[in-house]
Structure formats: structure tokens, C-alpha cells
Design a protein around this nucleic acid. Sequence first.
DNA 1: CTGACTTATTCTCGATTTGAGTTTATGTCA
DNA 2: TGACATAAACTCAAATCGAGAATAAGTCAG
Lengths: 294, 294
Amino acid sequence: MPENLAHAELIAVLVAVTDNEPRVMTLGAGAALPSGPFETGHRSLQSGLRAWIESQTGHPVGYLEQLYTFADRDRAGEASDPQRQPRHISIGYLGLVREQVALGDARPEWRSWYEYFPWEDRREGRPAVMDEITGRLLDWAGEDVTRRQSVEFLFGLNGMVWNEDLVLQRYEMIYEAQLEKVPGFGRQMAGDHRRILATGITRLRAKIKYYPVVFELMPDSFTLLDLQRMTEALAGLRLHKSNFRRQIDQQNLIEETGAMSSETGGRPAKLFRYRPAILEASALSGARLPYSRH
Amino acid sequence: MPENLAHAELIAVLVAVTDNEPRVMTLGAGAALPSGPFETGHRSLQSGLRAWIESQTGHPVGYLEQLYTFADRDRAGEASDPQRQPRHISIGYLGLVREQVALGDARPEWRSWYEYFPWEDRREGRPAVMDEITGRLLDWAGEDVTRRQSVEFLFGLNGMVWNEDLVLQRYEMIYEAQLEKVPGFGRQMAGDHRRILATGITRLRAKIKYYPVVFELMPDSFTLLDLQRMTEALAGLRLHKSNFRRQIDQQNLIEETGAMSSETGGRPAKLFRYRPAILEASALSGARLPYSRH
DNA sequence: CTGACTTATTCTCGATTTGAGTTTATGTCA
DNA sequence: TGACATAAACTCAAATCGAGAATAAGTCAG
């Protein structure tokens, strides 16, 4: 009898952006993230998932990063002989795909991730659904001051500033308040998949700030506005044009191709390409400690 | 016959700081990190590990964060019937413990993490071993310009600035160059444990910059210099005193206890305590996008 | 051909934040 | 009582950031 053995499952949050809409690959009419077992023949977790994705979508995944591993929920209270049931372990990954791809065997569908988290898209301003969400969350918080403050912090109420990175924490609060199934509060998914999606969005939104990962989603050549729109789509926010531009060229990660684009009806824009140089210190713009050069 | 089942193992990088030295809990004369199987009775991965650690050290773990999950290396080339061998999956965690603890059953030992990565401690300046390491890495790089630049970037050569967060990347380069067993280049560990330790240090060094996690390692009351020394021990760097102080009180995370400490022979220092307030936006000092308030 | 319109690209400029000290305060101890 | 040691506050130039104005280079209607 095998003891302490578990099923290991690989789950992918596969992201592509088309028409300025960040999309995630789903199965079953948008109800599940693609997943497959980690098999004995797989060389590693990552290569197992990579092979699997490529067979499904027929397209290589540029970037693949592990997100989080979790076990199925508490089996302790389960009937009869819990020893007999092997545990399930799910290992989540974030993958980035360069563009809309030919569909594979399993009829995958790309869906906007904002279908699942409508309150996370603030590009056109504060979405209408926010009022109902925060209203019901504040009702739930009631007299509990700490809870109230958490709502205000996470949802940018009372003059607090909206932080786009807190996707997972916002979803978990909504879940804790048992509001995740309220009509209008986003599409549901099976099991923990919606939570894993939130984890992926959170990771990606944080990462684009200090690591040049957007370029995995960009075509070979692009204008600066294309790059800005991509970043805005991911962050769910509008950015300041010239400051965005300044930040980009301080990082020194792109170069002109020489060609121009005149798609947009105004002055033609220069086309750029990613310069996959050695990462310089300047490209990693993370937080810093107050160093002493002494 | 169970197919696609795996052994799941929990591995802990447990950190405590004593005498300004960051230490990690080890077993077997410093050759292994503590680890134990994920058992059928465990409620969750985290609670399984937590219970396990507390039974070993008799001390609660304040902070516990998942690091990374990896599978055992390629079994494809293995003899006879690879199907029969279940895979091993290891789930690494970073745990923070407030201080030196009473030892548990398994005779754990706390060892300075710089025994394993001597080049990572630059508090007393560039360690002597750096010259030999970088010399041998540059030999290994040879004519390969990309490789050469990576060495220079990771180890802060040629005027590039040392980035204390790149612990894992530095270790992986040393490993790739097959220099990890060179005498003087740090103590060895069994299996992948040294790599997991590097992952833990990397995560912790990155995290202290944008999340108030140092306080998990501090005693209830402390001086500002204590806090600085703690941060320096973790980062392996000296920090600028008054700028460190300014950063701390901008974050608004500590408050005076009213008492003073006169341990150090100079002017007595005020004692502070952590104010475990609701996390304000100001406490999260991560990188930012060029927002538009428009 | 010209002027309105649209979008791209550059500049400007005050407000903050940072890096690197210097100065002043308050103890202990010989 | 004065040397010594460390804490805590203050200074100031340089770099970065937030916000928006100015200028450039196309298209298109008339």
C-alpha cells in the first residue's frame, strides 16, 4: 500500500495580449485553467508543462515561471479511511505567449482576464461595479475597524491610492466575505482555478515593474505607444505618456529598427525592437536599501 | 500499480539571527536542511511544515513563506523500469524564527549562512576569496563575451555595482562552472539543499526591501542601530546610518517604547517596538509605473 | 495647395527623494 | 571635569518624478 504518495498536477496561467486585452487560456467554456499531470516520463516540472502546452496550443511558450504550489484542502474530516485517498498537489505556472495562437486539440479559448476580475480594469476609470463591491464589503466588515481599514486599503477608498498589485489580496477578501459568486462580480472557475489566476495576474503586474518581461508579449517590432498600451492592459491603468517614455529609455532596453509605422493617422511613429542585452543593473529597478559607499 | 504518484517532501530554510550573524538550521553536521514528508494527516502544506518544525525546535515559527517546488532530476535515462520508481517532489519554504531556540530531537545546529556562501558577506568589505572566485569564473568564461559580461554583472566587476539580491544566480553560475566544490568556495550540502538555501537568502534579501519582514527576526524592543545591524546582516552590506533611519521613519512602522538602552557606552539610544499596523501604501515601497492621475 | 486635425517626440520645471555628510546632544568613564 | 562614544537631528547638492507645454510630421478635406 502506498503511503504518503500524492498526485502531482501542473496548472498553467497562460497569458497573451490581443487587441489591448490581456487574455488567459481556458478550457470548458472558461471554467478551468489548462492542467495536466506531472508524468513519470517528464524530465522536469517545467519541461513537462512546456511540452504539454506546446502540444495543446501548437505554439512555443516564451516565458514560464513557477507561481505557487498548494495541496487539496483538509482531508482530516473525511469519511472512513483517509489513508486510502492520495493527496493532490497542484503546481501553478505563469506562461507568456507572444500572440493569439492556433487552437490545439482541447479547444482552448482565450478569455479576457477582466471577465474574472472586472474590478481590476481601471483603464477607463473606476468601473461601475466597484460601488457595489465596496458597499457589500463594508457591510461585511461592519464594526470591525481592522477589517474596514483593510477594505479601504485594498480598494483605494477614503483617499487611499489604488495599488494594482493587490489582485490576489482583493480576491481573497471578496472570497472571505463570500461574495465571489455574486452576479456581476466576475466569472467563476472550477476549484481553486480563479485563485490561481489571481496569483498569476498579481505576479505579472509586480514583475513588469522591475524586470523586462513585457517584451515576451510584444511582437518583434513595435511603437512606444504599443508598448505603453501593453503595459496599461496588464496593469489595468492608464500611464503618463512622456514619463513612461522617459522610464523606458533610461532602461536602455530597446533600439530603433529604422522603420516607421503610420498606422494611427497622426505623425508616424518610430518602430523599436527589444535589445535582449545582458541585463544591466539599470534594468533592474527594484527597491533599494540606503547603501553606504563607504 | 500506482502511476503518476510522487513522494512530496517539505524542506525548510529556517533563519534566525544571533550576534549579527544570519543563521540557518541544519542537520547532519551542516550537510542538510531539515525536511520531512508531507503526510496524509497534514491539513495543508504550510501547517504540515509548521507542526513539524515546532516539534523539532520547540519554538513557533513567526513567518513562513513558500519558496519553490522542484522535482528530482531526470529519471528518463534510468535503468530498467523507470515507471516503477515514484518521483520525488520537494517544496521549499522560508521560515523566520525570532531568536536562538532550544534544540529539538534531531540535534539541529544553527550555522551562519555565510559558511555556505562566503562571498555574499561584504560587511567588512570585499572578502578575500572573491579574487579567486572571479578569476576562475573568468577563466571558465574564456572568449565567450556574453558569459564574461554575466560574470562581471553578477560579481560587480569592471565598475558594475554589486547587487546583493543575486545570490541564487551567483551560486548557479559557480555551479555551472563546476566550481562549487573548490575548497574555500563555501561548505557543501546534500542534494539540492545548498541551492534551496540560496533561494531562501535571495528571497529574504529581496523581501526586506519592500515588506516589513525584518521585524519577525527582531526582539520585542530594539534600538535603531539594532535594526540596522539586522538588516546589514541579512543584506551582507553596510548601510548609511542616517539615511537608513530616515527611510525607517518614513515608513512609520515603529514607535518609541519610552525606555532607553545604554548598552553601547555612548549616548543612550531610544528603544522602539514594531507597530503591527494595517499595512499602509507607504509601507510597500516597491517599484512604480509612471502613473497618470488624469 | 493649404489649413485643420492627429499623433509622436521633446522640453520644461517645480516638487520630492536620495546620497553623503556635518553638527549637536547626551550618556559613560578615567 | 573633560575625553570619548554613540545617538539623533540637520544640511545641501544631485538625481528622479509628476505633470503638462511646446514642437514636429504625417493625413485628409476643401
